[in-house]
Computed example of a mutant assay.
Amino acid sequence: MTWLVDLIHEFGFGIVFLNVLIEQLGAPIPAYPVLVVTGALEGANLTRLLALVAIAVVAALIADIVWYRAGRAYGHAVLGRICRISLSPDACIRQTESVYGRWGPKSLLIAKFVPGFASIASALAGTVGTPLSTFVLFDTLGALIWVGSAVFLGSLFSSTVQDLLDVLTALGKWGLLLVAVAFVFFLARKWWRRTRTLRSLRMPRLSVQELAGMNAQGVFPTVIDVRDASQYQRARIPRSQLWRDISRQSELAHEPLLPHEKHAHGLVVYCDCPHEISAARIAKQLQRAGFTNVRPLVGGLEAWRAAGFEVEADELSETRSVSPGTLGPLIP
């Protein structure tokens, strides 16, 4: 264990740069503890503490701009890949969309404190066309707050952190094994949570070709969109209803859909999440409310558009989407 502490002493800044960069790119390797430890080891050396903060912020900004560019170039498809890399629950996409839709770039100020939010928020900023200058401003401020808090805590509790390192050093190989076991447990817990969520939402699904075929035959199931309202306005499957509008009409979210007999051809629920996780959750909720014929749409709106089927959009959204310098490429 002594060699690891010596390594942090010798190459602490380089380790911090790589750790922050890799974590912000999506890998489930937490950088905050390393920032705290490195801040503690630097102690009261203000110059080195400021250099540490600057290096970590630059690393975070590089990674975030990569995801911003990816979101701008490839749209919503990027978000699912981030979840798979980070082992975060796929539902984090919908949560991020909700927060970013409400607060916009200001949400980047606290993004790095929320597990599964930072990388997705960066990609989402590119997807919805947030101007690069605005993104860089708020992302830099958010990185400063995140890194600064870790370094401050480390310097504030430097003696406590040093005592902990001394204990781990005294344990020798056992101390290193303890750190390794903690890291493996962290990864295993994230993987298990993700796997358990996906298993709990297994149910029959409907393909976009099947839905289009039903429509072509004059059979129109009730189609429910569970995405954010802004995404619904920009593009949606024809005749679909926004779940948020439905659920707000009554204390019981499903009550406006009653009676069950209104939906002779069933209900189809869609989103743009990997594995249709948000749609499956609402579908399960509707099943518990007595709706027997309800299925998530495989691939959601992205699959519908990729198959070349028609989409609807509000006129204002269509106008804004082609205005230079406003929202950029709008890919829900």
Rank of each mutant, 00 (worst) to 15 (best):
Q24M: 15
L25W: 09
L25F: 13
L25A: 09
G26A: 10
A27T: 11
I29K: 07
Y32F: 14
L35E: 05
L35G: 09
V36T: 10
V37P: 04
V37H: 11
T38M: 15
G39H: 08
G39N: 05
G39K: 06
G39D: 07
L41C: 02
E42S: 06
E42P: 01
N45W: 01
L46W: 07
R48K: 13
A51F: 12
A51W: 13
V53G: 12
V53S: 14
A54N: 10
I55V: 15
I55W: 04
I55F: 02
A56N: 05
A59S: 06
L61V: 15
I62Q: 05
A63D: 04
A63R: 08
A63N: 08
A63P: 10
Y68G: 09
Y68F: 15
Y68P: 10
R69P: 03
G71S: 08
Y74F: 13
A77N: 11
A77D: 08
L79I: 06
R81K: 13
R81S: 09
R81A: 07
I82K: 07
R84I: 11
I85C: 03
I85P: 04
S86E: 08
L87C: 11
P89S: 12
D90N: 15
D90A: 12
A91Y: 08
A91M: 15
R94I: 03
Q95A: 13
T96C: 14
E97Y: 11
V99H: 06
V99C: 07
Y100W: 07
G101W: 07
G101V: 06
R102D: 00
R102F: 02
W103S: 10
G104S: 03
P105G: 10
K106M: 10
S107Q: 05
L109R: 01
I110P: 02
I110M: 11
A111H: 08
A111T: 05
K112R: 14
K112D: 07
V114T: 01
V114Y: 06
G116H: 04
G116S: 03
F117V: 03
A118S: 13
A118N: 09
I120H: 03
S122D: 01
A123C: 02
A123F: 02
L124M: 11
L124H: 03
L124Y: 12
A125V: 06
T127R: 09
T127W: 01
G129M: 05
G129E: 05
T130H: 00
T130D: 01
T130Y: 00
S133V: 00
S133N: 04
S133F: 00
T134E: 09
F135N: 01
V136C: 10
V136P: 01
V136R: 01
L137N: 07
L137D: 07
L137W: 11
F138T: 00
D139N: 12
D139A: 09
D139S: 12
D139G: 04
L141S: 01
G142Q: 01
A143K: 05
A143S: 10
L144H: 01
L144P: 09
I145R: 07
I145F: 00
W146C: 08
V147C: 03
G148M: 00
